[in-house]
């Protein structure tokens, strides 16, 4: 169940020739893959970093790596999990460095949330903005768990494989992460969670 409106999930069959063309440096093929997946990658990075500028940078870096290393990506397997792993790594790198982190937190506090497209755009924007802000206060390991569960809608075994943690620990880690996230959201005024 994916609630995003415009994600067209490409089949591996459709991806394969595009990836092969991309490995030969074909701009059109790269652009097609970009337009198909950038929104999802950017949103993932945004949830992981909490800052739109840094997320844009991380998402673009992931696609530059795709363009440079397309010959190393197995074209018979779905592309998105590869992109997801790369963008998670990019986000971790972005978050290194205390000074950058603090500057980012200040920006996050000022930012509005872009691109509302729900039935009630204002309410949806405010809700997502609050969640993004709350997520940015979580330790990054817990933020990754929440994002993979709720944005990426992965099963526990897939989360474990993506993050390299034992599958048996996902449920208890998610419990800790959600408990903290709830505390933060309550502090930010989410009455319905009390």
């Amino acid at each position: 169940m994916n609630t995003q409106a415009t994600t067209v999930t490409m089949t591996a069959d459709a991806e394969q020739p595009l990836l092969e063309a991309c490995a030969r440096g074909d701009r059109r093929a790269f652009e097609t893959l970009f337009r198909n997946y950038f929104g999802r990658v950017h949103r993932l990075a945004w949830a992981l970093i909490g800052d739109r500028d840094a997320a844009l940078d991380a998402a673009q870096n992931a696609f530059l790596k795709l363009y440079r290393h397309a010959d190393r990506v197995d074209p018979r397997r779905p592309l998105f999990p590869w992109l997801r792993a790369i963008v998670i790594r990019e986000c971790r790198m972005q978050q290194r460095g205390e000074r950058r982190r603090r500057a980012r937190e200040e920006r996050v506090a000022r930012q509005a949330v872009p691109h509302a497209s729900a039935a009630d755009p204002v309410a949806a924007r405010e809700a997502a903005e609050r969640v993004a802000r709350a997520l940015s206060e979580l330790p990054s390991a817990e933020r990754e768990l929440i994002v993979l569960k709720h944005l990426e809608e992965l099963r526990y075994v897939e989360i474990a494989a993506t993050l390299g943690i034992p599958a048996g620990t996902v449920m208890s880690r998610l419990y800790q992460a959600r408990r903290k996230l709830r505390e933060i959201l309550v502090r930010l005024g989410a009455e319905e969670l009390r």
Binding site: R43, V113, P114, A128, H150, R178, L181, R182, A190
Partner: peptide
Amino acid sequence: LNRMVQAMNTYTE
């Protein structure tokens, strides 16, 4: 909480 977090999913470029 889960519903609230899911709200982030409604964003598209």
